[in-house]
Simulated scan of single mutants.
Amino acid sequence: MSRFDNQTVLVTGGAGGQGSSHVRAFHAEGANVVIGGIDTQRGTALADELGPRALFTRLDVTDESSWSAAVLAAESAFGALNVLVNNAGVQNPPATIENTDQATWARILDVNLTGIFLGIKIATPALRRAAGGAIVNVASIMGLGGTAHYAPYVASKWAVRGLTRTAALELGRDRIRVNTIHPGVISTPFIHEPAAGATAAIADFYSPEPFAVPRLGEPADVTRLLLFLTSSDASFVTGSEYVVDGGLLLGPALPAEAA
């Protein structure tokens, strides 16, 4: 028996680099998967690839009615919703605070923070109807420190931490666990391609050479932790934060010749 047999998982940003990895892994573990996102072509193609236990639903995470429709689609298709993965996110084009316009600030927080708030708000009654479940909010190591030129993104990810802890306190007695994953530099288009309005990508500013584990992360590195946190193996884990960064936040490792 697989870990997620007879369970339904909704992944936002489910057709993206990390999202599609999560969707495929949950499906392989027996789950019904609901792929939420705004890229209809890629989302539909992924659902078609996976087959009958997969469904794409167009989901704008900044719109409460879109969230309601997505949760309804999950329950209508599969009978319940057991897991929510708040994976969708956007980055701002790099700029100092002084040179960041308010529209950019508002857009990043709307997607990265309000989107997660709405997800928790709208999914909670469905998870309660399913007699409990799990929510994982995908944040970033930028939510654990400051990063120059990314103030909106950093602020949004710091705020997700507080939101997660509050939700964990409010929902624990309903058997709904809420945790946060903080990925580091994961090899996906998100970090290899410039954000809208930018000329440089996040990957341009990072070399994995100083990391304790000297490589970029892969989506599967995040997915494996996500599967644990949303499974019954983590039934006593809530309100916690998990970093997947190859040791980036530890500081530079000594080169072998200096050891």
Rank of each mutant, 00 (worst) to 15 (best):
N82C: 07
A168K: 05
I97S: 11
I120D: 07
L109M: 09
P152Y: 10
T44Q: 15
T96H: 01
A131M: 07
T104Y: 07
H149I: 04
A69H: 09
L127G: 02
V136H: 10
N112I: 03
L127P: 05
P94Q: 11
A130P: 09
L127W: 03
V160E: 12
A159N: 06
P93G: 05
A131G: 10
L109F: 00
A126P: 04
N99D: 15
N92G: 10
N92T: 05
A134W: 06
E64M: 01
V138N: 15
D101W: 05
V154G: 11
T114E: 04
A106Q: 13
G162T: 07
D101T: 00
L81E: 07
L84V: 14
L113R: 07
Y153F: 15
S65Q: 13
N87W: 12
R165M: 15
V61G: 02
G145D: 06
A77E: 13
A69E: 15
T57S: 13
N99S: 12
T114D: 04
G79A: 08
A126V: 05
I97T: 14
S66H: 00
V138S: 08
G43A: 11
A70L: 04
R129H: 09
F117V: 03
R165L: 13
V71C: 01
S76E: 15
R165H: 14
G145W: 01
F78G: 00
Y153P: 12
A155S: 15
G51S: 12
D60S: 04
L169K: 14
A126M: 01
Y150S: 12
D48R: 14
P125I: 09
G143R: 06
A134C: 06
Q91E: 13
T147A: 14
T100N: 12
I116N: 04
S68D: 10
A80N: 11
L81N: 03
L50P: 13
R165W: 10
G146S: 09
W67Q: 02
A139Q: 08
A131I: 00
A74N: 00
Q91G: 15
A88P: 09
K157F: 09
L113H: 12
R58K: 13
L113T: 03
D110Y: 03
V154S: 07
G79P: 07
A73L: 02
N82T: 05
A134F: 02
K121Q: 15
A123Y: 09
L50D: 14
R128I: 10
A148F: 12
Y150W: 15
V71W: 06
A47Q: 11
W67L: 02
H149C: 08
G89N: 05
V154L: 04
T44I: 10
W67G: 11
D60I: 04
D60W: 00
W158F: 15
L59T: 05
A54L: 05
